[in-house]
Amino acid sequence: MRAQVQELVFDCGDPAALVRFWAGLLGGDPVDRSPDWSYVEPPGFVRIAFQRVPEGKSAKNRLHLDLEVPDPETAADGVLPHGAVRVGGLVVDAQGSFQVMRDPEGNEFCFVTG
């Protein structure tokens, strides 16, 4: 049997706010199914959902999204006003470059080239 990815789900404290951050970043219209569940269907990607949980984030994500952009520094500058945070500096190596980021609830993601 093979399974197919239906959606990626982030645990969070404020689904409505977080879905709007990610919809702004990836495209698509934010949908609030209930106060505890929101989602966005970015063009060309699987649905990303956000479910309210009572506990806060306590450790580094074991899974994160790498988002390809022409310039990680410019992309980072563009999301800072929306609540994202840079983690460290730009990393450049033979494969390209990347900038580690956190969304408004602390979930890590990277802007990458390469």
Results as ranks from 00 to 15, higher is better:
Met1Ser: 12
Met1Pro: 12
Met1Cys: 07
Ala3Leu: 15
Ala3Glu: 14
Ala3Phe: 15
Gln4Tyr: 11
Gln4Pro: 02
Val5Thr: 14
Val5Tyr: 10
Gln6Thr: 14
Glu7Leu: 14
Glu7Ala: 15
Glu7Gly: 07
Glu7Pro: 01
Leu8Lys: 06
Val9Ser: 11
Phe10Val: 09
Phe10Glu: 09
Phe10Met: 07
Asp11Met: 08
Cys12Leu: 08
Cys12Val: 07
Cys12Thr: 11
Cys12Trp: 05
Gly13Lys: 15
Gly13Leu: 14
Pro15Asn: 06
Ala16Asn: 08
Ala16Ile: 03
Ala16Leu: 00
Ala17Gly: 06
Ala17Trp: 07
Leu18Pro: 02
Val19His: 09
Val19Asn: 06
Arg20Pro: 03
Arg20Asn: 08
Arg20Val: 10
Arg20Tyr: 06
Trp22Cys: 08
Gly24Ser: 06
Leu25Cys: 01
Leu25Trp: 01
Leu25Gly: 09
Leu25Pro: 00
Leu26Glu: 04
Gly28Gln: 05
Gly28Cys: 08
Pro30Asp: 11
Pro30Phe: 11
Pro30Glu: 04
Val31Asp: 11
Arg33Asn: 11
Arg33Cys: 10
Ser34Ala: 12
Ser34Asn: 04
Ser34Glu: 04
Pro35Gly: 11
Trp37His: 10
Trp37Arg: 04
Trp37Leu: 13
Val40Gln: 13
Glu41Phe: 01
Pro43Val: 15
Pro43Ser: 14
Pro43Gln: 09
Gly44Pro: 05
Gly44Leu: 13
Phe45Lys: 14
Phe45Thr: 06
Phe45Gln: 11
Val46Tyr: 08
Arg47Gly: 10
Ile48Pro: 01
Ile48Arg: 12
Ala49Gln: 04
Ala49Leu: 04
Phe50Arg: 05
Phe50Leu: 02
Phe50Asn: 02
Gln51Lys: 01
Arg52Glu: 06
Arg52His: 11
Pro54Ile: 13
Pro54Cys: 12
Glu55Ala: 10
Ser58Cys: 03
Ser58Ala: 12
Lys60Ile: 13
Asn61Asp: 15
Arg62Pro: 14
His64Tyr: 11
Leu67Phe: 03
Glu68Gln: 13
Glu68Thr: 12
Val69Tyr: 04
Pro70Glu: 15
Pro70Tyr: 10
Asp71Pro: 00
Glu73Tyr: 04
Thr74Cys: 07
Ala75Gly: 09
Ala76Thr: 08
Asp77Phe: 03
Asp77Thr: 03
Gly78Cys: 07
Val79His: 02
His82Trp: 13
Ala84His: 13
Ala84Met: 13
Arg86Trp: 07
Arg86Leu: 09
Gly88Lys: 08
Gly88Ile: 03
Gly89Arg: 13
Gly89His: 02
Leu90Cys: 00
Leu90Ser: 01
Val91Tyr: 01
Asp93Glu: 14
Asp93Ala: 02
Ala94Asn: 12
Gly96Ala: 11
Ser97Thr: 10
Phe98Met: 00
Phe98Lys: 02
Gln99Met: 09
Gln99Leu: 08
Met101Tyr: 02
Met101Ser: 01
Arg102Asp: 00
Asp103Tyr: 05
Asp103His: 00
Glu105His: 00
Glu105Lys: 04
Gly106Val: 04
Gly106Phe: 00
Gly106Lys: 00
Asn107Cys: 01
Asn107Lys: 03
Cys110His: 05
Phe111Cys: 02
Phe111Leu: 03
Thr113Ile: 02
Gly114Asn: 02
Gly114Pro: 01
Gly114Trp: 08
